[in-house]
């Protein structure tokens, strides 16, 4: 979204019809917002990442690479890697679960579509923290699932589900699934049915029509959904702390710790900058794929 928002200034500026002051006036609020809440904090983060700190954890401005050097210690790298794995797994599951759901919603009758879309949005009406706490009472040893399994004699001993990597991925999938369904839904809604019929007419079976026609046509939705899930999932710390129990630390938890318990904001900032670079790489990689998909 930020991409399309940032393009107009240059397009307008180079426009032979000349950008009128009205255009700038309309863009004004957005530019101020971007400067205040995107540009300035980013600059602050980068400056902090090169600084030192004093006894009470206050930032002492200076210039050194020590914080970045520390980032490449195997400990933090392995935590980075784990967080990427959790986020990738969550994204993959979101695609597998979200695609059929989005497709069904997109193909439903307008009346049903509205109901189904509302149902997707309903969880947003309560705070995600409350919903995550609800999972704790479902998954714990004396929780709903285990009591059911035990009382129906399916299992002799309770399953240990909370505070495991399984719980972390489940929490991520549950919270981010709507962010996958909604963009795919918009792609599916725009999907021209005659193209699918043409594929059938030309002898493609359902599988072939799906993989060669439907998937490529809805790829923009999948890409957008994947970004919307993957990027916040790497940095998420609230869900991973609550559901993972802290024994499987993620990079979001480590960064949060630097700003709170460890009194080391500069190091936290350096990890944050690296995370941001990782997101930029993601945008470029996925963005390029999107372009190559267009000619199809």
């Amino acid at each position: 979204m930020a991409e399309t928002a940032r393009q107009p200034p240059t397009v307008l500026g180079l426009d032979p019809r000349r950008a009128s002051w009205k255009a700038w006036l309309l863009l004004g609020p957005l530019l101020v917002w971007l400067a205040l809440f995107v540009l300035l904090p980013t600059i602050l983060l980068i400056v902090t990442s090169f600084s030192n700190r004093d006894e009470l954890g206050r930032v002492v401005y200076s210039f050194n690479w020590d914080n970045y050097r520390r980032c490449f210690d195997p400990t933090w790298l392995s935590i980075f890697w784990d967080s990427i794995l959790y986020a990738l797994l969550a994204t993959a599951i979101c695609v597998l679960v979200g695609y059929p759901a989005a497709y069904t919603i997109g193909r439903a009758s307008p009346a049903n579509r509205r109901i189904l879309l509302t149902l997707v949005m309903v969880p947003f009406w309560t705070s995600f923290l409350i919903r995550t706490y609800a999972w704790i009472s479902v998954l714990s040893q004396e929780g709903l699932v285990n009591s059911l399994l035990l009382s129906s004699h399916i299992l002799p001993t309770p399953l240990s589900m909370m505070y495991t990597p399984f719980a972390i991925v489940l929490g991520l999938v549950y919270n981010y699934l709507p962010f996958m369904i909604l963009p795919i839904y918009t792609s599916v809604e725009k999907l021209d049915n005659s193209l699918v019929e043409a594929a059938y007419d030309l002898g493609a079976g359902p599988l072939r029509a799906f993989s060669r026609v439907i998937i490529p046509l809805t790829r923009p939705g999948i890409t957008a959904g994947a970004l919307l899930v993957f990027v916040p999932a790497i940095a998420m710390y609230a869900i991973t702390t609550l559901m993972g129990g802290g024994s499987n630390p993620t990079i979001g938890e480590v960064i949060q710790n630097q700003f709170t318990r460890a009194r080391n904001q500069p190091f936290g900032a350096a990890l944050g900058v690296l995370l941001m670079l990782l997101f930029l790489v993601c945008f470029f990689v996925l963005g390029r794929k999107k372009h190559s998909a267009h000619p199809v």
């Binding site: 400990t75 784990d82 024994s247 630390p249 460890a262 080391n264």
Partner: peptide, 14 residues
């Protein structure tokens, strides 16, 4: 306090 935090986080992660 940062050293202490680093030590514990390292052992936790490993």
């Amino acid at each position: 306090s940062a050293t202490v935090d680093e030590l514990v986080t390292q052992i936790k992660a490993k």
